[in-house]
């Protein structure tokens, strides 16, 4: 027993509490709040730095180029964001994207077969990708296999299916509508692809901020056991999240097919790691529960500005990934709230 002073009796009057009186917030935490914007400041600083070294960076056409190069990574990273917020991971990006791109290329007017389904081909292909996402989620929660391994397998399967239906070759997209996504610039501004990516950003933002699913994603990432105690349908939420991710990779497939004007099984090569990197650089924690789609926007922009800047500054392509590696470490080291994480895996 550790007796304490006996609290005053009932009628001593009710003290009015304001949060500061309860210890409320303290000054140290507002610094942490500031830290959450670190990736954004990093983006600004990086842009200014590159702009200072080469003023062409801020030219209108270059900025459009940056936006354009960010469109596909943004769409993919948005899907990945929700998965990472859960504390899971999805390695199937490249496979799903390949299936999406190949299906679209084969079902619209192309040089390989007689199909010409137009926009319904796009819908079909993206639905197929949602289906793969569903499978990812269902196997993950159904068989209780870590998402890492399920999606690793699905990566192979995806690339394999794309290879199989194309027989290892490449097919060219002849459909004007699809190509216009990458080529047309309404009102001389961003290409349609950028608008599509921004639309995806808007929708995922609404899902994250305004829907129950969004709320539950954070709850599961913050503490799966507590979330389950509050009656949240954890399994269903996880499956939905993997479906959303699959859908967005499918959309990424559409944009890729439009940009390259072709579909092949390796169209997604190299996308996985840049996607995860963008999400983490934006400030979303791999442990789940922290971050969000706006963070991802910042992360994708950092990577896009960095890529563009290195070209502008004439850094040899060989060195680029090295520079990128160093800057990623710096960015994450600066923005990670490491005091809170006792164990880093």
């Amino acid at each position: 027993m550790e007796p304490r002073k006996v609290p005053p009796s009932a009628d001593s009057g009710t003290p009015q509490i304001r949060s500061p009186e309860l210890g409320g917030r303290n000054a140290k935490l507002s610094l942490n709040r500031l830290k959450r914007y670190a990736p954004f400041f990093a983006l600004i600083a990086l842009s200014l730095l590159i702009g200072a070294m080469n003023p062409r960076f801020f030219e209108f056409n270059n900025l459009i180029r940056v936006a354009n190069s960010a469109s596909i990574p943004l769409v993919l990273s948005l899907g990945m964001t929700f998965v990472i917020l859960l504390g899971s991971i999805d390695l199937s990006v490249e496979g799903v994207l390949a299936i999406g791109a190949v299906l679209i290329s084969l079902l619209v007017r192309n040089n390989g077969n007689g199909f010409d389904l137009g926009w319904s081909a796009v819908v079909l292909a993206i639905l197929a990708c949602s289906g793969i996402g569903f499978l990812n989620g269902a196997i993950h929660v159904g068989l209780r296999i870590p998402s890492f391994m399920v999606t690793l397998g699905m990566w192979f399967i995806g690339v394999g299916v794309a290879t199989l239906i194309l027989g290892g070759s490449t097919v060219r997209v002849l459909d004007k509508g699809i190509r216009s996504i990458a080529l047309d610039r309404p009102m001389g501004f961003f290409p349609i692809a950028v608008w599509v990516a921004l639309g995806a950003l808007g929708i995922t933002w609404v899902i994250e901020r305004q829907t129950r699913i969004g709320r539950y994603i954070y709850a599961i990432g913050g503490g799966e056991d507590l979330a389950a105690l509050s009656g949240i349908p954890v399994k269903r939420v996880k499956i939905i999240v993997f479906m959303i991710a699959g859908t967005l990779y499918g959309l990424g497939g559409l944009l890729s097919a439009a940009q390259l004007g072709q579909g092949n099984a390796l169209i997604g090569s190299g996308r996985l790691f840049s996607t995860v990197t963008a999400v983490v650089v934006g400030g979303t924690a791999l442990t789940g529960g922290e971050g969000g789609v706006l963070n991802t926007l910042v992360g994708v922009m950092i990577m896009a500005v960095l890529g563009n800047g290195m070209v502008l500054l004439g850094i040899s392509p060989d060195v680029q990934q090295g520079v990128q590696g160093v800057l990623i470490i710096v960015a994450v080291a600066l923005s990670l709230d490491r005091a809170r994480l006792k164990i880093v895996k």
């Binding site: 709320r215 954070y218 709850a219 990432g221 529960g289």
Partner: peptide, 10 residues
């Protein structure tokens, strides 16, 4: 049993 990464209202 509160989730620290959510807001009070949530």
């Amino acid at each position: 049993s509160l989730l620290l990464n959510l807001t009070v209202g949530e």
